[in-house]
């Protein structure tokens, strides 16, 4: 295994640990709603977007039509547009013809790990990371559907912290280097808290508003230092 692949597996394991139990929950829920095994598998295998899949199941059961669910999915997942915008610049010409695959694997966690990985990103690194995330999500879905609640409940509950811990862990080295990143991160968290409490935006849009507002503020007030440290 190359050094890059090894690094990617190391970064991929925490994503797997975070996705797997969430996907198990999705599999169990889908089965409870009488969705077939094939359809449940396809939800995870071709949509591959955690929160929106849960929301879709909820809306289905509440009798919302397909168009309504698809529109909600668009809104909930639109934040990936901004994440892809960043990643497409970061990858540049390197993405080449692989961009169609690479774009499919853009999730919150994959994006976060890639963003805060210093230096240039290799294709191997990106794919190994995305494959570990994808395997965690799809295998968890199947395991949940077929085996039901086979993990001890306390363990599943505990794994609820994994993705947040991962996001914080990838951010920490950058925080040590730059107060400006800390400032952007904290202000974005505060803004998001306010927006969530106000509850006027649809699911997924509080994050989009935070990214746009805070990144704009960052671009106008602290561009140079930030650009350097993130690109490292």
């Amino acid at each position: 295994m190359t050094e890059m692949a090894r690094k990617a597996v190391k970064a991929g394991i925490p994503i797997f640990i975070g996705y797997f139990p969430a996907a198990v929950a999705f599999g169990i829920l889908a089965k409870g709603y009488d969705v077939s095994l094939l359809e449940t598998f396809l939800f995870s295998a071709v949509v591959f977007a955690g929160a929106s899949q849960f929301i879709a199941l909820n809306l289905l059961v509440s009798g919302v039509g397909y168009m309504g669910i698809i529109l909600t999915t668009l809104l909930v997942n639109f934040r990936h547009f901004l994440m892809s915008a960043y990643l497409s610049r970061r990858m540049g010409a390197l993405a080449g013809k692989y961009k169609f695959l690479m774009a499919f694997g853009v999730t919150d966690e994959v994006f976060s790990v890639l963003s805060f990985t210093p230096g240039s990103l290799s294709k191997t690194f990106v794919f190994v990371l995305q494959v570990s995330a994808y395997t965690g999500w799809v295998s968890g879905t199947l395991a949940g559907y077929i085996l039901g609640g086979f993990l001890p409940q306390v363990l599943t509950q505990s794994m609820g912290i994994a993705l947040y811990s991962l996001l914080l862990a990838v951010l920490l080295p950058e925080l040590k280097k730059s107060c400006r990143i800390l400032l952007l991160t904290i202000s974005s968290g505060i803004l998001n808290t306010v927006l969530v409490k106000m509850a006027i935006l649809p699911d997924g849009w509080t994050i989009i508003v935070c990214i746009v507002v805070i990144a704009l503020a960052g671009a106008f007030f602290i561009e140079d230092e930030l650009g350097d440290s993130v690109d490292g």
């Binding site: 960043y86 919150d108 951010l171 990143i181 974005s188 994050i207 805070i214 561009e223 650009g227």
Partner: peptide, 13 residues
């Protein structure tokens, strides 16, 4: 370039 820092804050908090 500011997107990662802005996104991760809102993803965590």
């Amino acid at each position: 370039k500011c997107i990662p820092a802005a996104a991760i804050g809102a993803l965590i908090i």
